[in-house]
Amino acid sequence: MSRAPREETELSDVETAVVDDPAADQEDAVLLFVGGPLDGRVEVRAARHGDPLPTVTHVHLHDGPKVVSRYDLQPLPGRAGVYRLRPAAPRPGRAG
């Protein structure tokens, strides 16, 4: 019994796969910060990270006591939003 010679095919070192990534169809979000220590900051959140968070907390530790600022998201049309500084809550026991 005689065997026919086998054909060898050259394989690539790099394989390409098609991945169904829903974030690939989305655009990055552009976010503006208003008020507090982050005032004027513009941040681009990559679509792969999902939707922007409803609240962002920033802790400032330099030059004195710790200052905690909270920003609440106000969505805008498209993939944009504004984080506005949350007003400081009144502290119990302090006269204002």
Rank of each mutant, 00 (worst) to 15 (best):
S2Y: 13
S2D: 07
R3M: 08
A4W: 14
A4Q: 14
P5F: 00
P5D: 03
E10K: 07
L11G: 01
L11Y: 05
D13A: 15
D13V: 13
E15N: 09
T16K: 00
D21H: 01
D21E: 09
A23F: 13
A23S: 11
D25R: 09
Q26M: 09
Q26S: 12
A29Q: 00
A29H: 03
V30F: 03
F33G: 03
V34S: 01
V34T: 01
G35P: 04
G35Q: 04
G36E: 03
L38A: 11
L38G: 08
D39V: 06
D39M: 09
G40W: 01
G40K: 03
G40E: 04
G40Q: 05
G40S: 01
V42D: 06
E43R: 11
E43T: 13
E43M: 15
E43W: 10
V44Q: 02
V44P: 01
R45Q: 13
R45H: 09
A47V: 04
A47M: 02
R48W: 14
R48G: 15
D51R: 12
D51T: 10
L53E: 09
T57W: 02
T57H: 06
H58S: 07
H58A: 13
V59S: 02
V59G: 00
H60P: 01
L61E: 14
H62Y: 13
H62S: 03
H62A: 08
D63E: 09
G64W: 02
P65Q: 09
P65T: 08
P65M: 15
P65L: 12
K66E: 04
V68Y: 05
R70S: 13
R70P: 08
R70I: 10
Y71D: 00
D72E: 07
D72Q: 01
D72H: 05
D72K: 04
Q74T: 14
Q74P: 12
Q74N: 10
Q74R: 14
P75T: 01
L76V: 06
P77F: 12
P77H: 14
G78D: 03
R79N: 02
G81D: 07
V82Y: 00
V82T: 06
R84C: 11
R84M: 12
L85P: 02
R86G: 03
R86T: 13
P87C: 02
P87G: 00
A89N: 10
R91F: 08
P92D: 15
P92N: 06
P92I: 11
G93C: 06
R94H: 13
R94V: 05
G96N: 09
